[in-house]
Design a protein around this nucleic acid. Sequence first.
RNA 1: GGGCGAUUAGCUCAAUUGGAUAGAGCAUCCGGUUUACACCCGGAAGGUUAUAAGUUCGAGUCUUAUAUCGCCCA
Length: 873
Amino acid sequence: MPRNFDYADAEPRLYDWWERKGWFKPEVAGADAEPFVVSMPPPNVTGSLHLGHALFGALEDLMVRYERMRGKAALWVPGTDHAGIATQLQVENMLREEGSSREEVGYEEFLHRTWQWKEEHGGTIIRQLRRLGASCDWDRERFTLDDGLSTAVIQAFLTLWEQGLVYRGPRLVNWSPGLQTAVSDLEVESSEEEATLYYFKYPVEGGEHIPVATTRPETILGDTAVAVNPADARYAGFIGKSAFVPILGREIPIIGDDAVDMAFGTGALKVTPAHDFGDYEIGQRHKLALVNVLNKDASMNAKAGKYAGADRYDCRERLWRDMEAAGLTIKTEAYSTRIPRSQRGGEVVEPMMSTQWYVRIQPLAEKAIAAIRDGDIKIVPERYEKVYFHWLENIQDWCISRQLWWGHRIPAWYRERDGDPEGEIHVGRDAPQGEGWVMEEDVLDTWFSSGLWPFSTLGWPRESDDLERYYPTQVMETGHDILFFWVARMIMMGLWFTDKPPFHTVYLHGLVRDRHGKKFSKSLGNVIDPLTVVDKLGADPLRFTLITSGTPGNDVNLDETRVDHTFRFINKVWQITSFINMNLEGELELGLPPVEELDLPARWILSRLHRLIANVQHLFDIYQFGEAGSQILAFMWDEFAPYYLEISKHAMYSGNDGEKIATRRVLVVVQDTCLRMLHPFMPFMTEEAWRYIPHDGEALIIADWPKANEVLIDDEIESRMNVLLELVRELRNTRGEYKVDPGKRIKALAKAGAAAQDLAAHDYVFRRLCNVEELQLLTAEDPAPTNSASIVVSDIALYLPLEGMLDLEAERGRLEGEANRLTGQIAKTQKMLGNDNFVSKAPEDIVQRERDRLADLESAYAQVAERLSSLSR
RNA sequence: GGGCGAUUAGCUCAAUUGGAUAGAGCAUCCGGUUUACACCCGGAAGGUUAUAAGUUCGAGUCUUAUAUCGCCCA
């Protein structure tokens, strides 16, 4: 067996082997196996792996491998998303570098180039996921723009259309001038920014003025009313009169509306229904005209009069200067307000009138709310259910059309009628018969197709075998940042189109941040590339670290020193395997010998192991994978390796054949069990290590998940062993305090009371673990040795003759400290047990535990006190 | 404005039906080439669990308020 785990060699070799053997496919579990299906959140096809992907990869692969080992037909469906805007921007950038543009090359050529780009770059992220060890069924890989999914998208759209849930019409939308498309509410991010509030005078008939304030003066040009609150004594008299748009002189009404906030600004409001969501509402109520003054690139249009053609911000300045000259301005003041920006491009989004396609989402949302409320779908952690409800209960119709070229083109055709080029409309799978039909140019929002993902990837709308067998899926694991974008829409669309919840559990993870909780960003220079980490240390350390660094729903602060530590843990596990491997001899019967034939250390480690299995099982049941991983690590590093392995050397090097075989069998069983439990966390090393210990079965990836055996969990065995181990720790400690050379063999004498038998039978434990060459048992009557340091555990006293090294003062101080500590604890425990409420109300076992503890403390105290008094004689 | 989360060792994080002395890693200090591992081993130090009140026999854990930071929604 190699001295170290060579991940660079093993990772590709094992991955190919697993895949070639078909173990990533659910079919290996047999036709009767219960399915366990996870749909991978499809990464953007043009993306490259970042830590967010690494986190979902690690978590989903963990779940899939775990369920595969439990005998389920485990299926992880991989794929990529065409990511409309993101991809189109990439290709547009490429064209720009060539000195060309989307418009210049034209629609057909642009699509051609984008597909080409996809073919060239689309495989990157998939290759990177493989490097992490992702056990997806790659034969089932899908792409949101492939033929099958396109069929699904069209089917979904047409169904909604036929049900009257899709409509098209002019509405106020969030318009992204940079991208020149509408974007949904979710794609707009508002944040507080410093702006200017402009106060000016709105001219009113008869030469009067109403003072008005705005942050966007250029929208004055699109005003179609001035509104005041009817309850406002200052302005109520103006209602019904006419005002005149500054500079343009257009006549508009002054209206009264309760929505006007009397306390804000001047208390009077300019109303621009075509460029403000609030004003739009007022406009609807008062049947105001809509005057759109912006072009698609946010320059001013002809309605802006002499400002036509100017950029919106130039116009703002020029208009204000002109108003100043006209004596219409009052003042400007600094003002902090929320500025809406495009999530993608970052530019300021303008509310603008535009004709778009919408989904009437209410009926779908109602089903989605019910699914969570009725428990058909659970969200982990649960607190996100509230967030989910709040969003769905206040949901707005979904603008699904985008003015892009890369995407699913909306299946609609228009024909001119009565001078209106869109006078006639046809929605259907195919172009209508007849002349003059022009297909809709808009495409669907990317999230429309990803909303169908759990079932479209399995063949829907075809009644495929996969759909029948693997839908609904089980767990949807994804980031909490796309709860609305994606999860809620999958639930709505899944319920609507398949009448089944698309999964029973939503597991949400957080964002991966740097070790100080900062977002990764190129400008901060704190970006960690997962592939660099994988190159340097292998995939296993990164996976384990990501999983154990956080809890569900919370952000993960990745501390790279933890990756290093996991790397060392992996080495540790490898070395344990290596030790077992080199102590094997001939054939070994698998499994445990009868328990009665096992010695105390063996029964102890098995009890600990099965307690661990039970804990890990519970933690997996409640999706606490990180804690499960930490517990396995702690067991191996703090119990199995330093104690049992060391103790086993006694049997291994000086035992008889029977003892050797029994010990080997225990070592193999414990290691085998740990490797199984670790496999979902760190598949590569565990698979490779498993080959070096006796095992049953072809590969760890398809080995059985361990089950706890209650019979082996034994409190009494554990506490007997704990006494020995506690003595070992105290001995080491005391040696250290007296600076006894670690290599020096010393002698120990013990008054062991009830534990005498255990001490005598396991004296080698002290030889191995703390270099005690001889352990001599004293009876209670024997005088305590003089000139020795003493150690007390429970009712056991251990004496270390340290001739010449013992400092009586120091020893007295040491024992006094110990006595004080014990007195304190005894007092505390006595107080607890003296409390009738505690004794009568606390559970029986807790009370008993305290009683046992008190007895222990008291006998320890007695030993210490006796020793102290003999020292002072 | 509404909602959610976080606050535990110098730093990054655990502690899931409320129960013993609140645990790891990194960093620090002391000591070690012990035949699996120096990618290691043994030991030490480091905590008023943000603050205040409450519930309880018992609170890091439950309740309320406050503070600070972060996120989401309007």
